Computed example of a mutant assay.
Amino acid sequence: MATITKTIKDAGVSLGSTPWGNLSALRYLLATNAAGAVLNSDSTAAAAQGDVIRIGILPAGFRFVDSQVLVKVGLTASVTGKLGFAYVDGKDDTAAPQDDDYFGTGLVLSAAARLRNATANGTVVLKKDAYLTLTLAGADNAKASEVEVVIFGIAEGVN
């Protein structure tokens, strides 16, 4: 049996400035008040079906690996959502098209749960900053809630 070693290292295997690699976990918190409005946002209206909530910014050069949605305190009964991303500048990118359900769709947000990314999407490297978006469906929110979203990725930088 032979031992075969690649002579050219993959570009994505750079370990960054630490011996532990460059995997990052970006944490975003979404909370609503007793009326269902998103706290620390530009709106005082309750979050409703069809609303797109920009939870935070995903940095350019970030390669998506996985995601988790931790519903600590659920939204109103029947509220579901889809989790994705949209570019901050509003302009799509053909190499990495914005996708409103990249991390999942039909996510049940009305009960405490840990929801793992279950999509079959390939990896995407953001060429520019993008909003992490949650689009609500199923029902309007009318209660206090708390949802944590963690996006795992590799900080590769922009080429």
Rank of each mutant, 00 (worst) to 15 (best):
A25F: 14
T105Q: 13
G153V: 04
N141E: 15
A112E: 15
S67G: 10
A139F: 01
S14G: 06
Y131A: 00
A144C: 15
T7K: 08
I57G: 00
R116M: 12
K82A: 12
I53D: 06
F152A: 02
N40V: 10
G61N: 06
S14K: 12
D66E: 15
G61S: 06
N33E: 07
S78T: 06
L136W: 01
I53C: 12
V65S: 10
M1Y: 09
F85S: 04
A86V: 15
G50R: 08
T5F: 07
F64H: 06
L115I: 05
N121R: 07
G90S: 15
L115A: 08
A96H: 03
A155M: 07
A48P: 00
T3Y: 13
Y131S: 00
L134A: 02
G12M: 03
S78W: 03
A96T: 10
V65I: 09
A111R: 13
Y131T: 01
L109R: 09
I151C: 02
P59L: 00
W20F: 13
F152C: 01
T3S: 05
V69K: 01
Y131H: 14
L83S: 13
S43E: 04
A139S: 12
L132K: 03
Y131P: 00
L136K: 00
R114T: 12
T80C: 03
